[in-house]
């Protein structure tokens, strides 16, 4: 039972965290079709949630697993989670490298929407440029 729990935790980290990060990064670099500004906001918020969950779980799961394995006296899983700490650092470095290639940071990005610009309803005179009729 203890072993199954620790094993589940380990493989949740091993496969779950890269899965979340990969899904988040694919969404982050994609150019989605978001007709309105609200759609774009919602898309960006979901992407942020997936990326944040991946980054947080990457930090939490190996430490939690190492703690539980030490408490349970499981030498095999203690070694696995000690290795997971190194993997955690590697994953953070890999994500940081990808984040360095984006121009606006990894999270908090809102993709462009395809909403048309609001029509101009009043004239703004520009000094030296254009005047307005009647003004």
């Amino acid at each position: 039972m203890k072993r199954a729990g620790l094993g589940g935790l380990f493989f949740a980290w091993l496969y779950g965290v890269p899965f979340l990060l990969l899904v988040g990064l694919i969404r982050r670099v994609s150019r989605p079709y978001t007709p309105s500004a609200d759609d774009a906001q919602a898309f960006g918020a979901t992407t942020d949630a997936v990326l944040t969950a991946g980054l947080l779980l990457n930090g939490v799961l190996p430490v939690l697993g190492l703690l539980l394995a030490v408490l349970a006296g499981e030498a095999l899983w203690r070694r696995h989670f000690a290795g997971a700490l190194a993997g955690m650092v590697l994953l953070y470095v890999a994500v940081a490298l990808v984040a360095g290639m984006t121009s606006t940071g990894l999270t908090g990005h809102v993709p462009a929407d395809q909403e048309s610009d609001p029509p101009v309803t009043h004239c703004v005179p520009i000094s030296g440029g254009r005047g307005c009729p009647g003004g």
Binding site: P18, V23, P32, T46
Partner: peptide
Amino acid sequence: AVAVGTTSVPSA
């Protein structure tokens, strides 16, 4: 991850 990631992106 590629399947979930790409299908979750809406396309025109």
